[in-house]
Design a binder for these strands. Structure first.
Length: 647
RNA sequence: GCGGCCGUGGUCUAGGGGUAGGACCAGAGCCUUCCAAGCUCUUAGCCCGGGUUCAAAUCCCGGCGGCCGCACCA
């Protein structure tokens, strides 16, 4: 994280991006809104090209179908996904100074303060043991608060060995070494056996040092989702999606059938997502409306191998595991060593590195960091972030590769009541000889009248082993033994054949933050060391493919240049015609915008039919026949041939 | 959200109660040239709102935005 002014070259970069039409703060006409950015013609072109590169990987090569779902969704979706409950910060706001804290951190800090304040007193009174006791208990309370309290916690609290918690006063009290200690959010008090107050401290706000108690602080949830109403008037409560993923989860059965009911299968979505960040800063790095490109890969929960793992197995990656030292290793080794849990996750770590480096993110400034268990999103069981090093913002995460387990599908099944599982066929169907009792309703009906239904049900459920079908059997109905005559049922012997079972697939989610990636691409390829500032974008990503210039604007050169430009356009190239200023100035303009090549039409072009093609990064030039120009440039932009092969 | 600093053409900046200046970029022209040459001309600006004042870009208050720090960051 930068703790001084941002590096000059990144400031220049932002100025260039605005000047050249890449991007700028949105609604600056009316003063701007933090966290919202506009992409201009070049920025949008760059983004589109990145998306197309991403599609080449995920849609074309992986074969994941691309879908598009609404950005607005009803409340039920986020009740199920957990975003309503979990995707929020509990804000504690001190009414004196307005300092706001995140609730769980605040609580933790406050409890730790209890411990700190107790320490000197404990020393003075020789209560080391007591202090340790408090320390341990405070920790256990903190830990307990991190999860849903279970019956065992309540039992522990009431058992005397543990603190007593009073719901009304929110006070926690326990006995230790003849002293009674009371702790509540507003303070701490210690009384000795005689009821004498030994310590009476108030807790203070971390911001203004004012005493904090329930009366002086406001506590409330701050949900990061934008809420809205669907329909006129009060309508139904809805939210702008905080991730594109839910649109895939709610459609997982539809997609499963599209995939012809085979796992693994995947689907992707590229689109906008929204988070009402408390304090967005850092340009493209933290936006309130941003672009995600997400894939959800639905896999067999017991088989997280990947058929194409070999394709990335030898790839070297920089890993920062949650535990242990950072390593540079191949993915094969990482899986073998258990650093990365399974091939599925490792495969997408590899694919991510490939996409990012193809897009121009510097391999030397790219690493994958594993989330600590406590920073994991509420839905994830394992997560690796791709992070790039920014000269301006430090390490910035731009892709998350999470194993979401079955969290989402299980939740949606529970909330919606619809099956979200996939059918897993056994390698060999399990066959079992079973016997059961089949009631004959034509006899049971008249015999048992209104009770017939429940009797039949009991018959079907009854253990059929050892039943002699020539005899009556007894079944228990409502605690009463009832005898069913032999004629009224039949003993059926049959083969039960189980082909497979329904299971929740696990979901592996590579989730790309497009805006952040674009920033990484821009910063990593922005070169201010030369005579002119150059944006050395990968040719495939550059929003402009080729600059077209007449060397001088007379003698029919502009006309010829326009003709050539038209040919290039027909070949699908994005051109930029320019006859203003000196030739050097025109090259410089294109360098700054990242245009990989420029074509210059000179007098010889009119006679010999050749133009000069100039390379952005080396400034080298080659003469290329006009006939071959469009085709060769298209190949060059696609990366199929090198600059030397243009001629 | 809090605190500090800041907000002047597209960009960078000078100025600081009384007509807003420059550089760069951009546009037109001259020049006709393969790496931001030169000359002439042109477009274009005091973040928004309120207050003080005869007069506010300037002082005061509020808002919005930016940078830095704190906090936050699925």
């Amino acid at each position: 994280m930068a703790d001084e002014d941002p590096p000059e070259e990144t400031v220049e970069l932002m100025a260039m991006l605005k000047r050249r039409g890449f991007l700028k703060p949105a609604y600056d006409l009316y003063g701007g809104v933090a966290g919202l950015y506009d992409y201009g013609p070049l920025g949008q072109g760059l983004k589109r090209n990145f998306e197309d590169l991403w599609r080449q990987y995920y849609v074309v090569e992986e074969g994941f179908g691309e879908v598009s779902t609404p950005t607005v969704a009803p409340e039920a979706v986020f009740e199920a996904s957990g975003h309503l409950d979990q995707f929020d910060d509990t804000l504690v706001e001190c009414l004196s100074c307005g300092t706001a804290f995140r609730g769980d951190h605040y609580l933790e800090e406050e409890w730790m303060r209890v411990v700190e304040q107790l320490e000197p007193v404990a020393d003075e009174h020789g209560w080391t043991k007591l202090y340790e006791e408090v320390h341990r208990k405070v920790h256990s309370i903190i830990e307990a608060a991190e999860r849903e309290p279970g019956p065992e916690d309540i039992e522990a609290l009431l058992s005397g060995e543990h603190p007593q918690f009073d719901e009304g006063t929110q006070q926690l009290t326990w006995q230790a070494d003849d002293h009674e200690i009371g702790v509540r959010p507003g303070g701490i008090r210690v009384e000795d056996a005689a009821g004498e107050i030994v310590l009476d401290e108030r807790l203070t706000c971390l911001g203004c040092e004012e005493t904090v108690s329930p009366g002086t602080a406001e506590v409330g949830p701050f949900n990061l989702m934008f809420s809205t109403r669907i329909g006129p008037g009060d309508g139904d409560s809805g939210f702008l999606r905080p991730e594109t993923a839910q649109g895939l989860f709610v459609n997982s059965q539809w997609l499963y059938r599209y995939a012809r009911e085979q796992v693994p299968f995947g689907a992707v979505q590229i689109g906008r997502a929204y988070r009402n960040e408390i304090s967005p800063r850092q340009g493209l790095v933290r936006l309130r409306e941003f672009w995600q490109a997400e894939a959800e890969v639905f896999v067999d929960p017991d088989d997280k191998t990947h058929d194409d793992f070999d394709h990335v197995a030898g790839l070297e990656v920089d890993l920062v595991p949650a535990e242990g030292e950072p390593v540079t290793t191949t993915l094969a080794e990482a899986v073998e060593a258990g650093t990365i849990a399974n091939e599925m996750v490792a495969y997408f770590v590899g694919r991510t590195q490939q996409v990012l480096t193809d897009a121009g993110v510097d391999r030397e400034r790219l690493r994958f960091r594993q989330h600590e268990s406590d920073e994991m999103a509420h839905y994830a069981t394992d997560c690796w972030d791709a992070e790039f090093a920014s000269a301006r913002y430090g390490w910035v995460e731009c892709v998350g590769i999470a194993d979401r387990g079955c969290y989402d599908l299980e939740s949606h099944e529970r909330e919606s009541g619809e099956r979200m599982k996939v059918f897993r066929r056994f390698e060999e169907a399990i066959e079992r000889e079973i016997s059961r009792l089949e009631p004959d309703m034509s006899l049971l009906g008249p015999e048992f009248k209104g009770q017939a239904g429940t009797v039949a049900e009991a018959l079907r459920k009854r253990d059929a082993d050892g039943v002699d079908p020539s005899q009556a059997v007894t079944v228990e109905v409502d605690g009463e033994d009832i005898e069913v005559p032999a004629e009224a049922y039949e003993l059926v012997e049959e083969t039960d054949r189980q082909e497979g079972e329904w299971v929740f697939p696990h979901v592996i989610e590579p989730s790309y933050g497009v805006d952040r990636i674009l920033y990484a691409v821009l910063e990593h390829n922005w070169d201010t060391t030369g005579d002119v500032d150059t944006l050395s974008l990968p040719r495939e990503l550059s929003p402009l493919d080729v600059g077209v210039f007449p060397l001088v604007s007379k003698d029919g050169l502009p006309e010829r240049a326009r003709e050539i430009e038209t040919e290039l356009k027909r070949a699908g190239l994005v051109t930029n015609y320019d006859e203003g200023g000196s030739i050097g100035r025109r090259y410089a303009r294109m360098d700054e915008a990242g245009t990989p090549v420029c074509v210059t039409v000179d007098h010889e072009t009119l006679e010999e039919g050749e133009v000069t093609v100039r390379d952005r990064d080396s400034t080298e030039q080659v003469r290329v026949p006009v006939d071959a120009l469009a085709g060769n440039l298209a190949s060059y932009i696609e990366g199929e041939i090198g600059f030397d092969e243009l001629a």
